[in-house]
Write a protein that binds this DNA or RNA. Structure first.
Length: 662
DNA sequence: TGGCTGTACTG
DNA sequence: CAGTAC
DNA sequence: GCCA
DNA sequence: GTATG
DNA sequence: CATAC
């Protein structure tokens, strides 16, 4: 594999600006097709400027800004294109730094190079221009917003940051550059989101009238979007498109690559085409900054089989507040709940996994590439993460939340017994509020309770109260059968500070089937109902079935020292569940009822990959699954009593309940 | 391109 | 069984 | 949405 | 009606 | 619940 010498040479030709960035050209050359080899004169003038488009006013994001480029010319085709792009969006190209609002520096250069050009006398009264690398304008265009120029990703080599926060800005010598007004840009960005196949699904449909929503594959990113915009029908032959595709391919590559990159690639060295240049060993782990489609997951970060399962990665609660990615997580969670609402089951799953991954990060994830290297974060999510970090918002989410039916959906789904089908149906019938529902809809008994006690049932239960409720039940139970054990599971067992409901695992030494506990539960429930502790029954075993659970509502009685201080004690309805578990199955049941659900699914998935099966009853092996993965054989029971043994057999290192937050 | 945990209860 | 819940 |  | 899906 | 026994 001889290095592409010839190519690079031809490039150099076109890069008359010598000293600077031969590399750029290399690429251009390599891409041949673009301007046939002989880029020079003829083609060059072929009115690129003439093709300058004017974009709709709303897109004039750079209005009032003037960019000073370093190097100060537009000889290199790529830079010329970039300058023109900036102009399209309202920027002025200035050749005088004194009038510039931003100094756009080629990545190959370091901060010192900028200092050389920096006016010795400063800028007088006016704020000095912001110094950023060439990614800055591109990102602004991509997000259709003036993003914070102080972000790390726009720093030059050798540039020092002033603040430790996210928004640091570097100041040139005399510098007093703050991130300036509008660091939190409010500018509108365009949606970047390919709508999906998602057959037969009521997928989200962007509100009409909003700016192009469209298709835009993740690989296409910003530029193509422009052409595809509704208003201006794309012109196939537009020569700009040629550049566009070229830009897409290279815009994220450092402009220096190639043969000379060598040495300290501390810079955003890229090793694209690593395979080409022999040994040079640039195959360091540098996350290739390219955003092209080519998937190059760094191989160095080998993820072992078992590490791919969430149940094997540590996780504790809390990962929230102080987490450096809190903002990102918050936004993704909103997207997640949106997809939950529209019943996009699998996307919801993907988001939850990604959020889990993010929660475990100890450093802030800033760029797409950085995010992409993490497990369960693919291109699409990585892009969204970068968008959030860069613009502090997510366009896709804004559209989603604008959906008029969205709020009604959100309301209805929080009613016990109402899922997506029913909620959609109600909305289709025109109902939008709880009142509408109360008046016009025939509810099932469960839904009735759900509506009547809507607020109570959607209020989280403080841990302290869960404990208190637990005591009430345990006391009653002990009175009727001291041998029975009640274990509070769910998030409480994981150590949560508040829970959505209370889960009791009801078991008793010596029991081998739920039948042995059924009568006890009936008695217990009956008693607690008389005590007016249990106030509603939502679901309980059907006659014939295994009958192992009971769902209902309860209220905490007035208790000395806990809630008797207020003259007005109002009982709050709480969701309560009982699960009958024969003692022999306690381990499996504990795993199941401790969760969280991602943890459980992960454990079960791992089990199934190992030819085993895990459910609330136990761990089985040699499960035979027929042709359509239909379970043919139950499999042989391996373990069910001992929680730890189940972990062991699955090859999962033991994790305490409070370590099962995924 | 197909899978994505596995089960119990309601109506 | 579809829908819902866990 | 992610992944094998 | 009761069982089944 | 809808359908079947």
């Amino acid at each position: 594999m001889p290095p592409p010498v010839s190519l690079s040479r031809s490039l150099e030709t076109c890069s008359e600006e010598a000293s600077s960035s031969p590399s750029v050209n290399v690429r251009a050359g390599a891409t041949t097709r673009t301007q046939k080899t002989k880029t020079s004169s003829g083609n060059k003038k072929r009115g690129r400027v003439a093709t300058l488009k004017t974009r709709p006013e709303v897109e004039q994001i750079f209005e009032g800004l003037s960019f000073f480029y370093i190097p100060d010319n537009d000889i290199a085709p790529v830079r010329r294109l970039r300058i023109n792009r900036a102009k399209e969006f309202g920027a002025e190209w200035t050749r005088d730094m004194m009038t510039a609002t931003h100094v756009i520096v080629e990545k190959k250069l370091v901060y010192k190079d900028v200092e050389k050009l920096w006016p010795k006398d400063g800028f007088g009264d006016r704020a000095p221009p912001k110094v950023v690398n060439e990614d800055y304008p591109l990102d602004c265009i991509q997000f259709r917003a003036i993003v914070d120029p102080g972000q790390k990703k726009y720093l030059l080599d050798g540039q020092v940051t002033t603040e430790t926060k996210d928004k640091e800005v570097l100041l040139p010598t005399s510098g007093v550059v703050d991130s300036g007004p509008g660091t939190k840009s409010k500018a509108s960005s365009l949606p970047l989101k390919p709508q999906h196949h998602n057959k037969r699904k009521w997928d989200y449909v962007p509100p009409r009238g909003t700016p192009s929503q469209g298709e835009e594959s993740s690989l296409m990113k910003s530029l193509p979007k422009a052409n595809a915009r509704s208003k201006t029908p794309p012109k196939k032959d537009d020569e700009l498109s040629e550049f566009i595709s070229m830009m897409q391919e290279f815009k994220d590559l450092p402009l220096d690559v190639d043969e000379d990159d060598d040495a300290q690639s501390t810079s955003v060295g890229s090793q694209h085409q690593v395979d080409l240049d022999q040994g040079s060993g640039s195959e360091n782990e540098r996350p290739s900054k390219r955003r092209s489609s080519r998937r190059v997951r760094p191989t160095n970060k080998a993820i072992t089989f078992k590490d791919r399962f969430a149940c094997n990665r540590a996780g504790r609660k809390d990962a929230g507040q102080d987490n450096p990615n809190a903002r990102t997580i918050e936004m993704l969670q909103k997207m997640n709940s949106y997809y939950e609402r529209v019943n996009d089951h699998w996307r919801t799953l993907a988001y939850r996994k990604a959020i889990g991954t993010l929660k475990q990060q100890t450093v802030k994830i800033t760029t797409e590439e950085e995010a992409y290297r993490l497990p369960s974060i693919g291109r699409r999510l990585a892009q969204k993460i970068e968008e959030i970090v860069t613009t502090d918002k997510l366009k896709r989410l804004e559209y989603a939340e604008e959906e008029p039916t969205n709020s009604a959906l959100q309301t209805f789904l929080k009613i016990y017994g109402v899922g997506n089908k029913v909620a959609q149906q109600w909305i289709a019938q025109g109902w939008r509020t709880l009142d509408d529902i109360k008046q016009h809809v025939k509810l099932t008994p469960s839904q009735m309770v759900g509506v009547e006690h809507y607020d109570d049932l959607n209020t989280r239960i403080p841990r302290k109260e869960v404990t208190a409720l637990g005591e009430v039940v345990k006391r009653a139970a002990a009175k009727m059968d001291p041998m029975v054990q009640l274990i509070i599971g769910g998030s409480y067992r994981r150590g949560a500070e508040s829970s959505h409901d209370i889960d009791f695992i009801v078991t008793k030494p010596g029991t081998e089937s739920v039948a042995h506990l059924k009568s006890f539960l009936n008695t217990l429930v009956a008693q607690l109902e008389r005590d007016e502790f249990l106030v509603a029954r939502l679901a309980s075993s059907r006659a014939g079935s295994d009958g192992s659970k009971w769902h209902g509502c309860c209220v905490l009685p007035k208790i000395k020292g806990l809630n008797d201080d207020d003259e007005e004690y109002r009982p709050i309805w709480r969701r309560i569940d009982f699960l009958l578990v024969p003692e022999v199955e306690l381990g499996a049941a504990l795993i199941y009822f401790t969760g969280n659900d991602i943890f459980n699914r992960s454990m079960r998935l791992l089990a199934s990959k190992k030819g085993m099966r895990l459910n609330q009853h136990g761990l089985y092996r040699d499960v035979l699954r027929g042709p359509d993965r239909v379970k043919v054989t139950e499999g042989e029971l391996v373990e069910r009593r001992d929680e730890r043994r189940i972990f062991e057999i699955l090859g999962v290192t033991w994790r305490e309940p409070w370590e099962r937050w995924c």
